[in-house]
């Protein structure tokens, strides 16, 4: 991650012209500056600004932004909505991520071969992950719509009654988990394929010689050896679950009755429909801290796993 161990550019010694020396010394700064300028202006300064706003009260209209200390945090942590959003987000992550990863690994092991069928399948499965989330959410809003949707039509063929997929608080979150998994599955598969390709085939052969059956090989060889990939996907997916917004906004707006009110959806609602800028910023700061904690956890765990592997 650091450049400290690298050798100094050889170029310096080989370029004796004095007048260009200053320029050459400045070169890396000039090269890095544009990107860092953008990052400073649109990422780091805003973080400081969010922190500042989270201690204030403002509605976009008042000329003043009075300092209210920790009030916004207190109100948030006391509110039913915040804990509901945390709960919904956690359920989303805990349910969807393991199922998706298990499914992705199983499918990936089947799609290792370079036949045209498996290539076509990989393409088909991967397609949703590069497709517009809004479009997917709109299409699935139709699939799950009560009166004219595909799901209820299929249920109708079997003589079953209508299900209120997106109106029933017990079901709506499952619909979103399904749609999100449908979209993300292909990405997971691709990453697993990369992980699987790194496993030496001799290991499989050895396991087979031992008389292991297919499932045995999968459990004893494949699963442990792709563990680093699994950890990577696990953490990435949990982080991503904490940032889900688009499908919620298009399909349910966090409803019915808060059943799909994930944390970023709440952030958007508090900030840009209720215009409680203080609480919205406090929520953003909390989300930030949570995700940084996850990222640190990721680098620790992944670091350890990589170490174990080598």
């Amino acid at each position: 991650m650091t450049a400290a161990t690298e050798a100094r550019p050889v170029t310096r010694a080989s370029h004796p012209l004095r007048k260009t020396r200053l320029l050459r010394r400045l070169t890396p700064y000039l090269l890095a500056l544009p990107l860092l300028g953008f990052i400073a202006a649109f990422t780091y300064v805003p973080i400081a600004s969010s922190l500042n706003l989270s201690f204030r009260e403002w509605d976009f209209l008042s000329p003043t932004k009075p300092w209210v200390g920790l009030d916004n945090y207190r109100l948030l942590l006391d509110s039913r909505e915040f804990w509901n959003a945390m709960k919904v987000t956690a359920i989303f992550a805990v349910i969807s991520v393991p199922i998706r990863l298990a499914l992705a690994l199983l499918i990936a092991t089947r799609l290792m071969s370079e036949t045209w069928v498996s290539r076509l399948m990989r393409g088909a499965l991967f397609l949703p992950s590069v497709t517009s989330t809004v479009a997917i959410a709109v299409v699935f809003s139709w699939v799950f719509s009560t009166d004219y949707g595909m799901m209820n039509a299929i249920l109708g063929w079997f003589g079953l009654g209508k299900v209120y997929w997106m109106q029933d608080p017990q079901i709506a979150l499952w619909v979103l988990i399904f749609v999100n998994s449908w979209k993300q599955l292909g990405y997971d598969i691709i990453i697993y394929l990369a992980g699987l390709q790194a496993i030496p085939t001799e290991l499989y052969d050895a396991a087979s010689v031992d008389g292991g059956r297919k499932f045995h090989v999968f459990r004893r060889v494949t699963v442990p050896l792709v563990m680093p990939t699994t950890y990577f996907l696990l953490v990435i997916s949990v982080i991503e679950a904490f940032q889900v917004f688009t499908i919620v906004d298009v399909m349910t707006k966090g409803g019915p009755a808060g059943a799909t009110d994930m944390i970023v959806n709440m952030l958007y609602r508090v900030g840009f429909t209720l215009f409680d800028i203080g609480q919205g910023s406090a929520l953003a700061v909390i989300l930030f801290i949570l995700l940084i904690a996850l990222a640190v956890f990721k680098s620790r765990v992944l670091g350890r796993k990589v170490h174990y592997e080598s």
């Binding site: 608080p169 966090g254 019915p256 009755a257």
Partner: peptide
């Protein structure tokens, strides 16, 4: 949101 919670029996 309040109405949804009530109307849907939540």
């Amino acid at each position: 949101d309040m109405w949804q919670a009530m109307a849907l029996g939540q």
